[in-house]
Design a protein around this nucleic acid. Structure first.
Lengths: 220, 220
DNA sequence: TAGATTGTTAATCGATTAACAATC
DNA sequence: TAGATTGTTAATCGATTAACAATC
C-alpha cells in the first residue's frame, strides 16, 4: 500500500515538474520497464538528479533502492495521488468555438481526472448539438446546470471580450477552478483558482529564447 | 526614441511575466489611458509592486515618474522589443488535426510576431486544402520548404506517436525553435529551443491547487 | 506643501546544486 | 567486492520583499 503525502507543501516549481515526470514514467511503464533511477530520469528530462530525488521523496513514501532505482508503479501512483488526479473532477466548458470543440474532442484529459459533463455557448447554431458525446447547452443554462451537478471546474474558451463576464457567471454559480484559454486577464475572488493558458505569453517566451540563441551564436 | 536593452539577462520568472504585463498594458492603451503606475499594475495582476518596477526597469530605459507612473506607449514598445516581438518569425505548422486547424485559424499570433507560412500533414484528405489562407502541403515537402524559405520556427501538433519523428525532421531541416503541443517529451539537440505546451501538466497544476484549496477550507 | 510614486540597497526567502556517507 | 545509486546536509545561487531616500 502506497502512503500518500497529501499534506506536504510542494513548491510551485516541484508541482510543475511532477506531471512531466508522470508522463515520462507512464511511457516507461508501457514500454515494459519496472524500475527507473533518478539519474536516468534526470538525464532524459535534462534536470538535476538531486532535484529529481528531492521531488520524488516529497510526494512518495516509496523509497528508491541503490542500483535499482524506484519502482515505476509505486512512483506513478504516488504522483497521481499527490496531484489529486485520482479524484475525478467534473467540468463544464464555456465557448464552443474552434478551440472549445478541439478540447471537447480531446480524450487525454481522462488520464488526468477531468470529466467534461456539459458545454455552453450563446450561438444558437451550436446549441443542441453533441460533440464527442457532450451536449452543448444554452449559455443561460450554465448557472443552474453547474449548481445542480455541483461542478467545480470550468474551462473558458470564449472570445476575449466575453471572458470576464463568463468567468463571473461561473464563479457565482459555484465553480471553484477556472482553466482560462481566453487571452484576457481575469479578476476573480480569491477562493477561485485560475490557471491561464496563455498562448501569447508562451509564444513570447519561445520567441525570446530563440532570439537569444541566435544572437549568442552570432557573437561566437 | 526608446532605447532597447537587448543584452540584459532577464530571469525566466521575469520573462514569463513580461507578456502578462504587455497584454494588460495594451488593453489599458486601447482604453485610452496614457500612463500607468507600477502600484496599479501590481494590484491588478496580483503581483508585488517592487517586483513590477524591477521587471520594467530591466527591459525599459523609459523611467517612471513619481505621481504619474510610466508612459504606456514607451513601456509597450520596450517590452515588445525586448521579447523580440517586433521581429516577425516565419513558422510552419506540422499536423493539421483539430488543434492544428484551430491554431491556423487563430489571428492573435500576428500581435506576437508569428507568421505561419505553410502547414503539413500526412493525410491526403487535408493535403492541398487551404485553412485561413495557409496551404496544407504533404509532410514530405516539409524539409525542402523549410530550407527554401529559411523558416526557423515549427509548431508541432501531431499525435504523440509521431511527435519525436516530426521534431527530428524539423530540426534536421533547419528549424531552430519548436512549439510542441504534442503530449510527448522530445529529445533534441541543444541548439533547438523547445517550448512544451503541455495541457496535461497544466491541468495537473490546476487540479492540485483546487484540491489544496478545498482541503484548506475544510480544515478551517 | 503633502502625498503618491519611483528606484535602489539590504534583508529575507526559497530553490538548486555540490558534497558525501550509507546502501544494495 | 566494486560500483551504481540513494538520501541528506550544507553551500550556493537566484528571486522576492522590506525599507527608505529621492522625486515630482
Amino acid at each position: 500500500m502506497i502512503e500518500v503525502k497529501e499534506d506536504v507543501v510542494a513548491s510551485k516549481a516541484t508541482i510543475s515538474r511532477l506531471p512531466v515526470y508522470l508522463r515520462f514514467l507512464r511511457d516507461k511503464l508501457k514500454a515494459g520497464d519496472e524500475n527507473i533511477s533518478s539519474t536516468v530520469l534526470a538525464d532524459e528530462l535534462r534536470l538535476n538528479a538531486v532535484q529529481v530525488r528531492k521531488d520524488l521523496s516529497l510526494v512518495s513514501s516509496a523509497s528508491g533502492r541503490p542500483k535499482l532505482g524506484f519502482n515505476l508503479r509505486e512512483l506513478i501512483e504516488s504522483i497521481e495521488s499527490f496531484l489529486g488526479l485520482r479524484n475525478t473532477h467534473d467540468a463544464v466548458l464555456c465557448g464552443v468555438g474552434s478551440l472549445g470543440s478541439t478540447l471537447l474532442k480531446y480524450e487525454g484529459f481522462k488520464n488526468y481526472g477531468l470529466n467534461i459533463v456539459a458545454a455552453f455557448d450563446t450561438d444558437a447554431g451550436v446549441v443542441g448539438k453533441k460533440i464527442n458525446g457532450i451536449s452543448v447547452l444554452s449559455y443561460d443554462a450554465l448557472p443552474s446546470t453547474v449548481r445542480r451537478l455541483n461542478v467545480q471546474v470550468g474551462i473558458l474558451t470564449v472570445p476575449k471580450a466575453a471572458a470576464q463576464n463568463a468567468a463571473d457567471t461561473m464563479a457565482k454559480s459555484g465553480i471553484r477552478a477556472i482553466w482560462n484559454f481566453a487571452p484576457a486577464h481575469l479578476s476573480l475572488p480569491d477562493n477561485v483558482v485560475v490557471k491561464n493558458e496563455d498562448l501569447a505569453a508562451s509564444l513570447a517566451v519561445l520567441s525570446k529564447r530563440l532570439e537569444d540563441n541566435l544572437r549568442r551564436e552570432e557573437n561566437i
